[in-house]
Design a protein around this nucleic acid. Structure first.
Lengths: 216, 216
DNA sequence: TTTTATAGACAGACAGTCGGTCTAATGAGG
DNA sequence: CCTCATTAGACCGACTGTCTGTCTATAAAA
């Protein structure tokens, strides 16, 4: 019945995570949460100062998970630069096991505020990580751009908006057809020969699932 | 006291527009709205089925205003292609009188849902308009890209995220320094010589204000 | 005994509903 | 042309249920 503060806190966050995912932030009442955890109102508000505070704590966890995974990949210099970039971007967008469930339920339309907060974390956290890799690539003579940071920012903004979202209405074919276009545009932005990143297209198609550790 | 339905409806929308702008959607109660309009609860719900329904109607009005202005500029073939693109994009992002107040108060942090809905309208509505112009430019031999639509989508996603938002934390200098980078990247995407769009940079600095028709 | 965690009653605010009212137009009968 | 009943559309405001956040009391640990 009585528990360590951190344990309770995490229990609450786990339940909130699940319920927000199912019913959205607004659709989930604090009662839903505390009933499912099996605690009283007072306990909930002993551990969190408000409902939004719960969301912020949740985002903090996501943040660590998402950017942590990205940093890990980025630091792995045994992966060729080209591929590393794609992997880092995809670690968030498509589904690489880790962030899959997170990303999945953030994009429920009810979760506009949570969505916005996560986007902000990504838009501020991911481009610096990617820019590091680009600098490596520039040193290796692979890329050529005077504005690596802004390139990455543009790429992240695009993938977050178009691939990550129900922001753009499109059929599956339309989505698929955007991938070669995206790769082509990235090539131009990075100043590489057309086609040199093209071989990685296949990773968009199914590469994200192949090491998925859920749903199997 | 008694009015035509449409008149009342618009009164309510005008007030809601103002209050949402001041206090955000969540921060504005239906009571705030109906008191300021001077009607009873029942009347509000006679004209709108829910609070969100009011927001949707508001977005409908914005939608018409924002994309209408963009279409008007896009259709004006007396403006050179280069400049027309910049003007269309800026019609939404910086401030060209028309959409200024709208855009301004959409970006209050409380208005995440409204923001998301507007973004969606823009992301689906603006690229087609811009793509038309790009096709003109391609015919004139100004641009060269096999993926004009996706280029525009990327540009719009970027400006919406980075310039339009408090999504990215940056100082005024950082914001300013992103502009040449942005222009450079657009040049690459459109396949034009570096520098050929550069002369339009100055429009970003103050061009948006020079024909502003408010606050003066 | 003091601190930490838990409990649950409670207050205040809010969105949306419902039965009923008021008014202006319509139209039939005088 | 007048008048009175009928109707439909606009409006009202009390009411309901729900929700968040607060407060005080209490149990267990340190």
């Amino acid at each position: 019945m009585r528990k360590e503060a951190m344990e309770r806190r995490n229990e609450i966050l786990d339940v909130a995570d699940e319920l927000f995912g199912q019913k959205g932030f607004d659709g989930t009442s604090t009662n839903d949460i505390l009933e499912k955890v099996g605690i009283a109102r007072g306990t909930l508000y002993y551990h969190f100062k408000s409902k939004e505070d719960i969301m912020d704590a949740l985002i903090e966890r996501y943040n660590a998970q998402i950017l942590g995974a990205a940093k890990e990949i980025a630091a792995n210099k045994s992966i060729p630069v080209h591929e590393r970039i794609v992997r880092v971007v995809m670690a968030l967008n498509i589904s690489s096991g880790n962030g899959k469930e997170i990303i999945d339920h953030i994009h429920k339309p009810q979760n506009a505020l949570m969505h916005q907060k996560i986007q902000k974390v990504i838009m501020n956290g991911l481009p610096p990580i990617l820019t590091e890799i680009i600098h490596e690539g520039i040193e290796q003579g692979l890329f050529s751009t005077p504005y690596p940071y802004e390139c990455m920012e543009m790429i992240v903004a695009y993938t977050n908006t178009v691939f990550d979202d129900d922001m753009v209405d499109m059929t599956d074919e339309e989505r698929a057809s955007r991938i070669p276009a995206f790769v082509f545009n990235v090539e131009r932005l990075l100043g590489v020969e057309s086609g040199s990143l093209m071989y990685m297209m296949k990773m968009f198609g199914n590469g994200g699932e192949e090491n998925g550790n859920n749903d199997g």
